Simulated assay, not measured.
Amino acid sequence: MRDFTHGLRAAHEGERGHLSVIGHSYGSTMTGAADAGGSGLGADDVLVVGSPGLTVDRADQLHVNPRHLWVGAAPDDFVSNHTSGLTLGVDPKDPEFGAQRMYVDTEGHSGYWDDGSKSLDNQGRIIAGIRPQTQPRS
């Protein structure tokens, strides 16, 4: 994964583009392990949703700036709420971990991409390099 993201950077011509990496479920664990090792992923933003853990105990153990590490978790996501923090590092949604929370308005472990959801809109914002909504709008 590191070779892939570094290859994207190397192959890109012109002005540096905004690179975001999104990991879901155990893909988020792979994303965390890849960013923790070597020279990291070289991403401007990393977003993990439904994560059981990123293989580290604190956001600052990754190469991405903790202000650009986003965590999304649905209230009823079994993986995020019942397996995080057990064996794959500290729960990334724990405030003490040091990541940023992205507002999620979807349900379950796979609803993060539901059409018309704030969850999907927030992912688009992160991909575009725009701060996502972190709380529901009143």
Rank of each mutant, 00 (worst) to 15 (best):
R2M: 09
R2H: 00
D3I: 10
F4D: 02
H6C: 01
R9S: 09
A11C: 04
H12T: 15
E15M: 06
R16T: 14
R16L: 06
R16C: 04
L19R: 12
G23M: 13
G23C: 13
S25A: 08
S25E: 01
T29S: 13
T31M: 09
T31V: 14
S39P: 04
A43I: 08
D44P: 03
V46K: 04
V48P: 00
G53W: 01
L54A: 00
L54W: 04
L54P: 00
D57H: 04
D60C: 06
D60G: 02
Q61G: 03
H63S: 07
R67I: 02
P75A: 07
D77P: 03
F78Y: 11
F78N: 03
S80A: 15
T87E: 11
T87V: 14
G89C: 09
V90L: 08
V90H: 02
D91G: 03
K93T: 09
K93V: 08
D94L: 13
E96W: 11
Q100F: 02
R101Q: 06
Y103A: 10
T106H: 08
G108R: 14
G108V: 12
H109I: 13
H109M: 11
W113N: 05
W113C: 08
W113S: 11
D114L: 13
G116Y: 13
K118D: 06
S119C: 12
L120M: 14
D121I: 13
D121A: 15
D121M: 10
Q123W: 05
Q123E: 05
Q123K: 05
I126L: 09
I126S: 04
A128V: 02
A128K: 08
G129C: 10
I130E: 08
I130C: 01
R131L: 11
R131N: 09
Q133E: 14
S138P: 15
